[in-house]
Computed example of a mutant assay.
Amino acid sequence: MSIFDEFERFMKRWQRFFEEIERQIEEDFRRFSAQPPPGGGRPRYYYYGFEITMGPDGRPVVREFGNVRRRSDVERIEVVDEIDPLTDIVEEDDKIKVVVDMPGVEKDDIKLYISEDGRTLTIDARSKDRKYHKEIRLPVAVDPNKAKATYKNGVLSVELEKTEKRKRGFEIKID
């Protein structure tokens, strides 16, 4: 199978997925218009996106984010209250930088946790309108006492210092 065949299969799958999202949104708005939720309120929001990068094997890697999930057991989508935010992880020699898009919350709404083994970063944010949750398995253990975090214009940046350095191996001299 060529890469073009794979791409065509990939695009057909995404087209079906987006058609299902559109159908679900229309159904929710019809239901909301016919009978608004108690106490007023508004229909739930749909937040979905994806990022395509090239993997180390030369094949595309798709990372999804948002609050829309594909259910594998049925041909339906599921909308959840917690948003899985777009996240980038950049590993440097002695530190790891985690950048998370979380618009609509204030700095005081955000809670960060590092696991006891220093290998998992958990991000929770709760505001009146938005809920974010993300658990990130870090490539190496980090020191929670040296963590630094900033939040500006809807972007959370976390800088973590590694406790263990990745070994680079031995240099081979070229004759």
Rank of each mutant, 00 (worst) to 15 (best):
3 I>Q: 15
5 D>R: 04
5 D>E: 10
7 F>A: 10
7 F>Y: 11
7 F>I: 12
8 E>A: 11
9 R>S: 14
12 K>P: 00
12 K>A: 07
13 R>I: 02
13 R>Y: 10
13 R>K: 14
14 W>M: 08
14 W>T: 04
17 F>N: 01
18 F>A: 13
19 E>D: 12
20 E>N: 09
22 E>F: 04
24 Q>I: 02
24 Q>D: 11
26 E>M: 11
26 E>T: 06
27 E>R: 11
29 F>G: 04
29 F>E: 14
29 F>I: 12
29 F>P: 01
30 R>I: 00
30 R>E: 11
31 R>I: 06
32 F>M: 07
33 S>T: 06
33 S>L: 08
34 A>I: 09
37 P>G: 07
37 P>M: 05
38 P>D: 10
41 G>M: 02
43 P>K: 08
43 P>L: 05
44 R>G: 02
46 Y>T: 05
47 Y>R: 01
50 F>M: 15
55 G>V: 12
59 R>S: 15
60 P>G: 15
60 P>S: 13
61 V>P: 13
61 V>K: 15
67 N>S: 05
70 R>T: 02
71 R>P: 02
74 V>T: 13
75 E>F: 00
75 E>N: 02
76 R>W: 09
76 R>E: 14
77 I>T: 07
78 E>N: 00
79 V>K: 07
80 V>H: 02
80 V>A: 02
83 I>F: 01
87 T>C: 15
91 E>N: 12
91 E>V: 14
92 E>R: 15
92 E>L: 15
93 D>E: 15
94 D>E: 14
94 D>K: 13
97 K>L: 13
98 V>G: 07
98 V>P: 00
101 D>R: 10
101 D>N: 09
104 G>Q: 03
104 G>H: 10
105 V>Y: 03
106 E>L: 12
106 E>F: 09
107 K>C: 07
108 D>Y: 06
112 L>A: 05
113 Y>E: 15
115 S>T: 07
115 S>M: 05
116 E>S: 12
117 D>A: 04
117 D>K: 01
117 D>P: 00
118 G>V: 08
120 T>S: 07
122 T>G: 13
123 I>R: 00
124 D>L: 08
125 A>I: 04
126 R>S: 01
127 S>R: 05
127 S>E: 10
129 D>R: 05
129 D>V: 03
130 R>N: 06
132 Y>N: 01
133 H>A: 09
133 H>Y: 03
136 I>R: 06
141 A>Q: 10
141 A>L: 12
142 V>K: 00
142 V>F: 04
143 D>M: 10
143 D>P: 01
144 P>V: 14
149 A>T: 13
152 K>P: 04
153 N>R: 11
153 N>T: 03
157 S>C: 12
157 S>A: 14
158 V>D: 05
158 V>L: 11
159 E>M: 15
161 E>V: 09
162 K>S: 08
165 K>N: 04
165 K>R: 08
166 R>C: 05
168 R>G: 05
169 G>E: 08
169 G>N: 06
171 E>V: 11
173 K>G: 01
173 K>W: 11
174 I>E: 15
